[in-house]
Amino acid sequence: MNAKVKHKAVATWLALLVGSFGLHRFYLYGLKDRWAWLFPLPTLLGLIGVQRMNHLGQDDRMAWVLIPLLGISLVAALLGGIVYGLMPDERWNARFNPERPAEPGGWGAVIGVVLCLLVGGTTLMATIAFSAQRYFESQADH
C-alpha cells in the first residue's frame, strides 16, 4: 500500500488558514474523521453571529451567543496547528508516514507555528474579552 505522504508544514498551514472548517484534520485523517466534522458547524454559527451583529447591532443577544463559537473553533484549530508543527519529526513520521524515513519539518512548519501562536493568542484573548464584556453589560442592565 502506497500511502500519500503527509507533511507537517502543510498540516500546520491548513490549521492556520482553514482549520476552523476542519480541513487540517481532513488532510491528516480523511473524511471519516469525526473530530473534523465538529469544526464547520460552530464556525458557520459564529459567522452567522457576526452577520447578525453587523445587521442588527451590538444589542443582539443571539449574536452574543454565536460569535464566541467562532472564536472557540478558531482557537481549537490553531492549537492543533501548534501541536502538529511542534511534534518531533520522528514522532510525526511514525504517526502519519509510517512507511517512509523521517523527513524534517523545515521552516514552513516553524513559521506556521509562530503565526498560529500569534493569531491563536489574539483570538483567544478577543473571545474572552468579548464574552466577558457582553456578560457584564447584561448584568448591568438588570
Score class of each variant (00 low, 15 high):
residue 1 M to T: 12
residue 3 A to C: 08
residue 3 A to P: 13
residue 3 A to N: 12
residue 4 K to H: 13
residue 5 V to F: 10
residue 6 K to V: 00
residue 6 K to Y: 04
residue 7 H to M: 11
residue 8 K to T: 01
residue 8 K to Q: 15
residue 10 V to C: 03
residue 12 T to P: 02
residue 12 T to H: 03
residue 13 W to K: 01
residue 14 L to P: 00
residue 14 L to I: 00
residue 19 G to I: 03
residue 19 G to N: 04
residue 21 F to R: 05
residue 22 G to Q: 03
residue 23 L to V: 08
residue 23 L to H: 08
residue 25 R to L: 04
residue 26 F to V: 14
residue 26 F to W: 09
residue 28 L to P: 02
residue 33 D to S: 11
residue 34 R to F: 10
residue 34 R to T: 14
residue 34 R to L: 13
residue 35 W to G: 11
residue 35 W to Y: 12
residue 37 W to Q: 14
residue 39 F to T: 09
residue 41 L to R: 05
residue 41 L to I: 13
residue 47 L to W: 06
residue 48 I to G: 03
residue 49 G to M: 06
residue 49 G to V: 02
residue 51 Q to C: 13
residue 51 Q to T: 12
residue 53 M to V: 08
residue 53 M to Y: 11
residue 58 Q to A: 14
residue 59 D to V: 08
residue 61 R to A: 11
residue 61 R to G: 06
residue 61 R to I: 10
residue 62 M to C: 07
residue 62 M to T: 15
residue 63 A to Q: 02
residue 64 W to L: 04
residue 64 W to I: 01
residue 66 L to M: 14
residue 66 L to T: 02
residue 66 L to H: 05
residue 67 I to N: 01
residue 67 I to W: 03
residue 68 P to A: 06
residue 70 L to Q: 01
residue 72 I to P: 01
residue 73 S to P: 00
residue 77 A to F: 04
residue 77 A to E: 00
residue 78 L to N: 01
residue 80 G to W: 01
residue 81 G to V: 00
residue 81 G to W: 00
residue 84 Y to N: 02
residue 84 Y to E: 00
residue 84 Y to H: 06
residue 86 L to F: 05
residue 86 L to C: 07
residue 88 P to N: 05
residue 88 P to D: 10
residue 89 D to K: 01
residue 89 D to V: 00
residue 90 E to N: 09
residue 90 E to V: 07
residue 90 E to H: 07
residue 91 R to T: 03
residue 92 W to G: 01
residue 92 W to S: 00
residue 94 A to K: 12
residue 94 A to G: 06
residue 95 R to D: 01
residue 96 F to S: 01
residue 97 N to C: 05
residue 98 P to R: 05
residue 99 E to Y: 12
residue 100 R to W: 02
residue 101 P to M: 06
residue 102 A to H: 02
residue 103 E to I: 13
residue 104 P to R: 14
residue 104 P to V: 09
residue 104 P to Q: 12
residue 106 G to C: 06
residue 106 G to E: 06
residue 106 G to A: 06
residue 107 W to S: 15
residue 108 G to Y: 09
residue 108 G to M: 06
residue 110 V to T: 15
residue 110 V to M: 13
residue 111 I to G: 07
residue 112 G to V: 04
residue 112 G to I: 06
residue 113 V to K: 00
residue 113 V to N: 02
residue 114 V to I: 15
residue 115 L to A: 05
residue 115 L to C: 09
residue 116 C to Q: 10
residue 116 C to T: 07
residue 117 L to F: 14
residue 118 L to I: 11
residue 118 L to K: 05
residue 118 L to F: 08
residue 118 L to Q: 10
residue 120 G to M: 09
residue 120 G to K: 05
residue 120 G to T: 11
residue 121 G to R: 10
residue 123 T to K: 13
residue 123 T to R: 14
residue 124 L to G: 03
residue 126 A to G: 05
residue 128 I to M: 05
residue 129 A to K: 08
residue 129 A to D: 15
residue 130 F to H: 06
residue 131 S to T: 14
residue 132 A to T: 08
residue 132 A to F: 10
residue 133 Q to T: 13
residue 133 Q to V: 09
residue 133 Q to D: 11
residue 133 Q to H: 13
residue 135 Y to F: 12
residue 135 Y to V: 09
residue 136 F to L: 13
residue 137 E to S: 13
residue 138 S to N: 10
residue 139 Q to S: 07
residue 139 Q to V: 15
residue 141 D to L: 14
residue 141 D to Y: 07
residue 142 H to S: 10
